[in-house]
Structure formats: structure tokens, C-alpha cells
């Protein structure tokens, strides 16, 4: 028979990509370390890390989302239990990074497969996301340091309203109509 269909490569492995998964887990571990100021907080972040790892292991989005949520909750708990501001802020950055990179790993795995070379894209996403986090953390901490006479309530109030306004605006913003580079 001339119609030989065997010896094909076979269906592609659509599991999350290794690089982004590893980076996501590293971010999760950092979150756990940064939240180690209270048992509740550490427990929540470790649970989040576990669920995130599980989600990346089986290649499902919902555990990754839940794991990211647990990491965030752990950071908030650490902040409430007297963790330094720097640790809380960095912890939040790494928690969101873990969720972001985990989701990136899932998306790339689903669309291109684990075996496809995608590292340059993954690294770019990771660097960009980390830069965004640092780009917010550094000025925020700087403002906090610059404030000379403690933190007047009126200023804090004003800034909070600014943040709230920006959330309202951002939730209405459509990423599709964003500015074109």
C-alpha cells in the first residue's frame, strides 16, 4: 500500500511551556518568602503556590487563577499582620507576576505546544511584566519617602480618590482601542 500514514510526529503536546511555568513558580516562591511574616499569610501563599503548580501541571486555567488569587490574599494578610511596606508591595508584584506568567505559559502551550521554541517571546513578556511592577513600586515608594511631614490625611485621601478614579477609567477602557505603537 502506498498510502502510509504512520511515522508522523503525532499530536502536539499542548501543556504549558516550561520557561514561563518555571518563572511563574519562581515568582510564587518569592511571594511566599515575602509573606513569611505571619502564619496565616504564609499558609495562604503556600497554598496558592501549590494550586498554581497543580494548575500548571495539569494545564488548566482555573487552578492558575485560583492560585494567583490565594497568593494575593496571602500578601494582603501579610500586610495586615505587620509586614514591612516594601515586602508587601514587592509581594503583590510577584503574586501578580506568578498569575501573569502562569497564564502566559498556558496560552503559549495551548496555541503552539510545549515543544515549540517560544523562549524569546516568553522572556520578553516576563521582563515587560516585571518592569511594569517595578515601574509602579519605585515611584510609589519614592513618593512615600519624599513626604516630609508624615502623611497628611488630606493628601492620602486625594491620592486614593485618584487611584479609584483610575480604576473606574481603566475598567471602561477597551484594550482594543488602546494607542497604537
Amino acid at each position: 500500500m502506498s498510502n502510509d500514514t504512520s511515522n508522523g510526529v503525532g499530536p502536539i503536546e499542548r501543556s504549558p511551556t516550561y520557561l514561563s511555568s518555571t518563572l511563574a513558580l519562581l515568582a510564587g516562591v518569592s511571594t511566599a518568602v515575602l509573606s513569611a511574616y505571619a502564619q496565616v499569610a504564609l499558609g495562604a501563599t503556600l497554598a496558592g503556590l501549590l494550586v498554581l503548580g497543580l494548575g500548571l501541571g495539569v494545564g488548566r486555567q482555573s487552578p492558575v487563577t485560583v492560585g494567583g488569587g490565594l497568593l494575593v490574599a496571602g500578601v494582603v494578610a501579610a500586610g495586615l499582620s505587620g509586614a514591612p511596606v516594601l515586602a508587601t508591595v514587592l509581594g503583590m508584584t510577584t503574586a501578580l507576576l506568578a498569575f501573569d506568567l502562569g497564564t502566559t505559559a498556558l496560552g503559549l502551550g495551548e496555541q503552539l505546544g510545549r515543544e515549540t521554541p517560544t523562549s524569546e517571546v516568553e522572556l520578553l513578556h516576563a521582563v515587560a511584566s516585571a518592569a511594569v511592577g517595578l515601574g509602579v513600586v519605585v515611584p510609589a515608594l519614592a513618593i512615600r519617602e519624599v513626604a516630609t511631614g508624615g502623611q497628611p490625611v488630606s493628601a492620602v485621601f486625594g491620592l486614593l480618590v485618584v487611584v479609584l478614579l483610575s480604576v473606574v477609567v481603566l475598567r471602561r477602557a477597551d484594550p482594543l482601542s488602546g494607542r497604537r505603537a
Partner: peptide
């Protein structure tokens, strides 16, 4: 705000940064 914890407030500001990144980040043509 409710529990008066500046660290958590600032963490919220970090998340705002990501929300802005997601919504109005650079788009490629």
C-alpha cells in the same frame, strides 16, 4: 483603608499599574 494599613494600600497601587498595563498598554499595528 478600612484597616488602616499603608502597605496594603500601596500594594493596591501596584495592581493599578498592571490594570493600566493591561487596558491601555502599547498596541502593535
Amino acid at each position: 483603608l478600612l484597616l488602616e494599613e499603608p502597605g496594603v494600600l500601596l500594594a493596591g497601587v501596584v495592581a493599578v499599574g498592571y490594570a493600566a498595563y493591561a487596558r491601555v498598554g502599547p498596541q502593535t499595528s
